[in-house]
Amino acid sequence: MNKGKKVILMGIFIALGLVLQYIESLIPIAVLPGGKIGLSNIVTIINIYLLGPWNAIIIATLRAFLGALLFGGVSAIPYSVVGAILSSSIMGYMIKKTDKFSPVGISVLGAITHNFGQILVAMAIFMSFKIIVYLPVLIVLGVLGGFITGICALKILKHIKKVSFFGKDNFGV
């Protein structure tokens, strides 16, 4: 894949992630205020397979930054950005280093590291260890959300495999 094609694809994927984030903000989850499925995680997983982990981390970070500015407000920026960097690097590392996990397992791992990153930021900002009481709920939500996004990513990767535009690769499925 040449450089121009890559830059254009990265722009499109940032826009796609932002749209998914907007759609997600319209779906309220009653269990925990602020709980989310993490639909834009689908884009991050596909990016790791298509464009490589480094580009995926850049896309996820920019998407999180813009998404927080658009839908969350300035105070949400550190939470989104740290969560995105942590989850995309863990997912990228796991995909490159081991083939034991399917995209579903990778997605679950990414979702819980995203939540864990946000807890860490909250503990650092509020200087309070007590916020860790949210972790069990966030792990369960992360597993559920990660499973849903993982299934979606798996289905999409199966179709992307057939498109010659993205080059010949089996994309892990």
Binding site: K100, F101, S102, V104, G105, V108, L109, I112, L135, P136, V137, I139, V140, G142, V143, F147, L154
Partner: peptide, 19 residues
Amino acid sequence: MTTKYDRILIIFLLVFAII
């Protein structure tokens, strides 16, 4: 579709959350 390791990971995380 999902591998054995996926299932182990999910079960481990849920047990960890309960603990």
